[in-house]
Write a protein that binds this DNA or RNA. Structure first.
Length: 642
RNA sequence: GCCAAGGUAGCUCAGGCGGUAGAGCGGCUGCCUUGUAAGCAGCAGGUCGCGGGUUCGAAUCCCGCCCUUGGCUCCA
C-alpha cells in the first residue's frame, strides 16, 4: 500500500497537473494509500474528478480564510457543488457582502502561500475530544453520527479540518476561485438545529473557465423571461396592487397563449378529448370530499365565508330578508379534478362511454411561500392544460401511449426534442390494493416500452394515490424542466364513489388519469421565452411582420401591401412613422424581435415588388408581391412537427 | 418562512454622512422626407415601496411592515 505521492516520487513523475488517482471507479487523493499493484490511473486536474478534488480543497481554503478573519466562527461542513463549493459556518451575527470580499482576498492569499496539505487519522473518540476542547460543537455533532473507528483529518498551515477528502497536495494548486453568495441554512437541514451561514463559491481549473461561467450567467440574464416579458409586452406582475405570483397576460402575451391554446385544443379534440369549463371557487364541501382540505390545505388560499357573527350585525334589511341560512365557505380551487369527477358523476356512465376524456384550461390557485415565487416559473395563480381520463384499468396502457404521443407531438412544435422520462412506482404510504398497483405499474411500463422512450425508474417516488410518469424537457441551454406528467389515481374515484355500469350490468369503480402536457401555461411560457430568447417560432409570434413605409409619398403603397398581408392571414403591423430614420425603425423591429420587416419605398412602389428583411439577417429579399406573400405564409403558418 | 442585497420617472440606474430630486432610454410636440440596428430640439413625467419615530426640516438616520432579487437538493 502506498500513497499517490509516494508512487509519483518512486516513478520520478513531476507533473503538477495530477490531482489524484482513480482505482476501481473510486477517486483517491494523493495522500491516501492504494494498492499500487492493482490497476489505477492518475486523475488530471482538469477532469471532472480532478475538478471535484480541487473544489473540495477550495472549501477548506474558504474555511481557513474565515477562521483567520473571524476566529470565533465555528465550522460545520463544506462539500462541493456542480460548479464550485460551499462551507457552512456558525456565526450568529452572520456575514456581510463586505466580509465576503475580505474573505475572498484572504483566500487568494492562502493560495499564494502554497501551503502543503497533509492527511492524518485519529481515533474517533480522540477527534471528539479534540473538537470539544476547541468548542467546535458542530464538528462534535458530526463526529457522533460517524460510525467508523478512525476518522481522517487534513491540515494546511495552521488550519486543520475533519474531512473524508479527497484533497489536493497544496493550496497553491487551487484554481480560479470566486465567492458568489450567502445563504441561511439549518444545521443538518433540520429546523430544530441552529442557523448557519452558508458561503458559496465557484471554482474552475482556469481563469478562462471562470470567465466563461460568468459569461454564461450573463447569457442567462439576457434570456431571463421576466426581462423579456417586460421588453416585449408579454405579461406583467404587479406585486403591490394585484398580488405576488399573480400573472397579467398583456395583449401580445395573450395572443401567444391563444395560439398555443388553439393548437392544443385542435390536437386534443382530434384525439377524443372534450373541453369543459369549471368555476374558480367551490364550496368547501367539495374539498372535504376530495381530501384536499385535509392533505393540501397548506397550499390552499384561506376560506371565504359568509354569515359570520360580526357580519350578522352589519347586515342590512335586504340581506336579512334574503337570509343567510348557514355559514357557507368557499375555496379557490387548487386543482380541477373534483370538478371533472363531478361532471363524470352527473350521469350514470356506461362502459361504452369509457375512456371519457375531459380537458380544461383550468386556472388554479396555490398559496406558495413568498420566497419561492419566481416570475412565471413559480406563481400563485396559473392555468393548467389539464385533462382527466376516466377509464377501465384494461384501457390504461393504450391510453398512456396516446397521451405520450400527444405530448411528443405537441412539445416538438416548440422545438423541444429531448425528453427525460421517469416512471415513479409505489411509495410506502399509499391507497389502492397491491393488485391495482401491480397492474398499473406494469401497464405504464409497457406503454413506455412501446413508446420507444428511454426512461428511468424512481422506485417509491410515486404519489400516494398512484404511479406516475414524469417527463422533463431540455432547453437550448441544456437546462432541464419538468412539464408533462401522467398520474394514475386510485384515490379520488373512491373518495367520490365514481362508478360506471359494465357490460355485465354491475357497477364498477372507474379509474382516473390526471395528465398535463405543458404543466401550466404560465410556466411553459416562461420556459419557452428563455428557450427561444424571445424569438418565438414564427407561428407563435404575436406580430409576424411590420410593413415599413420609407417616406410619406409611398404610404399608399405600404397601406395596400399591409391590407394584402393582413387579409392573407398574417399578423402584420403598419409603420407609417416617417418622422423617424429608417435605420431607427429597423432597429425598433429588431428589438421587438419581429420576424419579418417589409421595407417599401419608391423603388418597390415603381417596380410593384416588396423587399423582405428577416430578423437578425442582413440579406434582403426582393420578390414580386405574390411571391412575397407566399414566402411569408410558408414561414409563418406552418407548425413544425405537425 | 430563513440569510444576504435591494425598492428613486414607464424601463435601466445615479445621488444620499439631513436642507427645493438626476441621467439615458421610452412617451408627447416640433423640425428634418429620411433606403436596412439609435437624426436634431423642446416638453411632460417622481407621495424616492408603505407606516411610524427622531428633527426646525427625512429620499437620506432609527423601528416595524410589504414586495423583489440571489440562495436555502448537494452533508466529515
Amino acid at each position: 500500500m502506498k500513497t499517490g505521492l509516494e508512487i509519483l516520487k518512486e516513478r520520478n513523475i513531476n507533473d503538477p497537473s495530477i490531482a489524484g488517482i482513480k482505482q476501481r471507479g473510486k477517486v483517491y487523493d494523493l495522500h491516501t494509500q492504494i494498492d499500487e499493484n492493482e490497476q489505477f490511473e492518475f486523475i488530471k486536474y482538469s477532469s471532472p474528478d480532478g475538478l471535484d478534488i480541487m473544489r473540495h480543497t477550495s472549501a477548506h481554503v474558504l474555511a481557513q480564510a474565515v477562521k483567520r478573519l473571524f476566529p470565533e466562527t465555528l465550522l460545520s461542513v463544506g462539500p462541493t457543488t456542480e460548479v464550485g463549493f460551499f462551507y457552512d459556518f456558525y456565526r450568529p451575527e452572520g456575514f456581510t457582502e463586505e466580509d465576503l470580499k475580505k474573505i475572498d482576498q484572504e483566500m487568494q492569499k492562502i493560495k499564494k502561500e502554497n501551503l502543503i496539505i497533509q492527511k492524518f487519522v485519529m481515533k474517533r473518540e480522540d477527534a471528539i475530544r479534540f473538537y470539544e476542547e476547541r468548542g467546535e460543537k458542530f464538528k462534535v455533532e458530526i463526529l457522533k453520527d460517524i460510525k467508523d473507528e478512525y476518522v481522517s483529518f487534513y491540515k494546511q498551515g495552521e488550519f486543520v479540518d475533519l474531512c473524508r477528502g479527497p484533497h489536493l497536495i497544496s493550496t497553491g494548486n487551487v484554481g480560479a476561485v470566486k465567492l458568489i453568495g450567502l445563504s441561511a441554512v439549518h444545521f443538518k437541514g433540520n429546523e430544530n438545529f441552529p442557523m448557519l451561514t452558508r458561503i458559496y463559491g465557484v471554482a474552475f481549473a482556469t481563469e478562462q473557465d471562470l470567465e466563461n461561467y460568468f459569461k454564461m450567467q450573463e447569457e442567462l440574464k439576457k434570456r431571463d423571461h421576466r426581462k423579456l416579458g417586460r421588453e416585449l409586452d408579454l405579461f406583467l406582475i404587479d406585486e403591490e396592487n394585484i398580488g405576488a405570483g399573480l400573472v397579467v397576460w398583456l395583449q401580445k402575451g395573450a395572443k401567444v397563449r391563444r395560439l398555443i391554446e388553439d393548437l392544443w385544443l385542435k390536437i386534443h379534440e382530434q384525439n377524443g378529448y372534450q373541453l369543459v369549463y369549471t368555476p374558480h371557487v367551490a364550496n368547501e364541501k367539495l374539498w372535504k370530499i376530495s381530501g384536499h382540505l385535509e392533505l393540501y390545505s397548506k397550499f390552499m388560499f384561506p376560506s371565504m365565508s359568509f354569515d359570520t357573527k360580526e357580519q350578522e350585525e352589519e347586515k342590512d334589511d335586504f340581506e336579512r330578508k334574503v337570509g343567510y341560512q348557514e355559514k357557507i365557505s368557499y375555496r379557490l380551487k387548487p386543482m380541477n379534478c373534483p370538478f371533472h369527477i363531478t361532471i363524470f358523476k352527473s350521469k350514470t356512465r356506461s362502459y361504452r362511454d369509457l375512456p371519457m376524456r375531459l380537458c380544461e384550461f383550468g386556472t388554479v390557485y396555490r398559496y406558495e411561500k413568498s420566497g419561492v415565487l419566481h416570475g412565471l416559473l413559480r406563481v400563485r395563480g396559473f392555468t393548467q392544460d389539464d385533462a382527466h381520463i376516466f377509464l377501465k384499468l384494461d384501457q390504461l396502457e393504450d391510453e398512456v401511449i396516446s397521451v405520450i404521443d400527444i405530448m411528443k407531438r405537441f412539445l416538438s412544435v416548440f422545438g423541444f426534442k429531448d425528453f427525460f422520462v421517469f416512471l415513479s412506482t409505489r411509495p410506502e404510504k399509499r391507497v389502492g390494493t397491491d393488485d391495482e398497483w401491480d397492474f398499473a405499474e406494469n401497464a405504464l411500463r409497457k406503454a413506455l416500452d412501446k413508446s420507444g422512450f428511454q426512461y428511468s425508474i424512481d422506485p417509491g417516488e410515486g404519489v400516494f394515490y398512484g404511479p406516475k410518469i414524469d417527463v422533463k424537457i431540455k432547453d437550448v441551454l441544456g437546462r432541464v424542466w419538468q412539464c408533462s406528467t401522467i398520474q394514475l389515481d386510485f384515490n379520488l374515484p373512491r373518495k367520490f364513489s365514481a362508478f360506471y355500469v359494465d357490460s355485465d350490468n354491475t357497477r364498477k369503480q372507474v379509474y382516473i388519469i390526471h395528465r398535463a402536457i405543458l404543466g401550466s401555461f404560465e410556466r411553459f411560457f416562461g420556459i419557452l421565452i428563455e428557450h427561444t430568447a424571445g424569438n418565438l417560432p414564427h407561428y407563435f409570434a404575436p406580430t409576424q411582420c411590420v410593413v415599413i413605409s420609407v417616406k410619406d409619398t409611398v404610404n399608399d403603397y405600404a397601406e395596400f401591401i399591409y391590407d394584402l398581408l393582413s387579409k392573407s392571414g398574417l399578423r402584420v403591423e403598419l409603420d407609417l412613422n416617417t418622422g423617424q430614420r429608417l435605420s431607427k425603425r429597423i432597429r425598433d423591429c429588431e428589438i421587438r424581435k419581429i420576424p419579418f420587416m417589409i421595407v417599401l419605398g419608391e423603388k418597390e412602389k415603381n417596380e410593384k415588388v416588396i423587399t423582405i428583411r428577416e430578423k437578425g439577417k442582413d440579406d434582403i429579399k426582393k420578390l414580386s408581391i405574390q411571391e412575397g406573400i407566399n414566402y411569408l405564409l410558408e414561414l409563418c403558418t406552418r407548425v413544425s412537427g405537425e
